[in-house]
Design a protein around this nucleic acid. Structure first.
Lengths: 185, 185
DNA sequence: GTATTATATATGCTATCTCCTATATAATAT
DNA sequence: ATATTATATAGGAGATAGCATATATAATAC
């Protein structure tokens, strides 16, 4: 699974705990990969059994011990192999588009509201994207590499471009609806 | 789940079997919703138990009996309620972007190949999108409604716009890499 | 002649995901 | 004072997805 490799990718920068990983995921790749907390812990256990990561327990008082994971040679090999492999195309699943697809049965005013909602949602998303560079800044030191940052930013750039396209699309549809260019039943 | 409502959406046009549905899905909404065959059958069974669809068995010789499903009043209510509801935002998951995100560790030539692959993949996707209108044409009669077709086409239009944006993005990155505008390690 | 595609449904198995909940303390915010 | 957030990990339960496979015949393609 891809989560495996995303985790390995981060551990390849430096050893981390499940807790650390959850934060890094949320700060840096949330715009294209949401990682569930319990899933991160379960995956780390599995990767450890597989020998792709190594666990080091750091004892603490008053708190659960930190379990720090580092990538192993095998893990690094698997990661690099996967990173340059051709991605198996994923089966698309977009429920908002199901709504659009069957929207024809509703009157124009109702459909306009649907697209206005999408328009605003894209505003919010773009605003959220705007905050990511600051969060990422904290990790610049961890990476100490402008090259890495370039590709981190590239994924964000794509997110922004897609959000804008979706917004334009929604707005074009709103215009069509308001100017009565959409056929009636 | 959204598959429930996509199925109800189609059954709202006319009664169909699982086999019919699989074809309609593949012909019309594959660009944003891939439906697994076994999942369609299982979902139909569940929807039947829920009372959202009704099953009529049509006996056949030499073949398994056709099990034709029609939407019920309850099902139609549920469908309409869902269609105009605000979509719960989905957790994004894009493995190709994981590859981009961690691409910095590879030399320029390797990364260029990754993006060239994406560029070509978008060409193929756009070509596939080009074939959809013909396939959809068969269903125009089923719908006998230009209004419905308008929204079918809208989903396709969005797919095309996004594919083009991704392609531009990939090409921009290729230029940056080839012109040495991407920082080295 | 042989292989594939179309017609039609169904189940087993596994992986995985998501949600919720549990535990425990310190520090910060209101 | 009280509530929330940060630190840290983990498991149960249920839903669903995906893949493979089974069955059986007719028609079409090569």
């Amino acid at each position: 699974m891809s989560l495996d490799y995303a985790i390995l990718g981060f551990l390849n920068y430096k050893p981390m705990t499940g807790y650390d990983l959850k934060k890094v995921f949320d700060d840096s790749v949330r715009h294209f990969w949401y990682a569930d907390q319990s899933q991160i812990y379960r995956t780390l256990n599995r990767l450890n059994e597989q020998g792709w990561v190594q666990r080091e327990v750091i004892e603490q008082d008053n708190r659960p011990d930190r379990k720090q994971y580092s990538i192993t040679g095998q893990g690094r090999e698997a990661l690099q192999k996967w990173l340059i492999s051709q991605p198996a195309e994923e089966a698309p699943h977009s429920s908002p588009l199901i709504q659009v697809f069957f929207a024809g049965q509703f009157p124009d005013e109702v459909v306009v509201k649907m697209f206005e909602f999408l328009d605003k949602a894209m505003d919010q998303q773009l605003a959220q994207y705007g905050e990511i560079p600051e969060k990422i800044e904290e990790y610049r030191r961890m990476l100490h590499s402008d090259r890495e940052m370039y590709f981190w930013n590239a994924t964000l750039d794509l997110g922004v471009r897609i959000a804008k396209v979706q917004q334009e699309w929604a707005r074009d549809l709103i215009s069509d609806l308001k100017d009565h260019r959409v056929p009636q039943k």
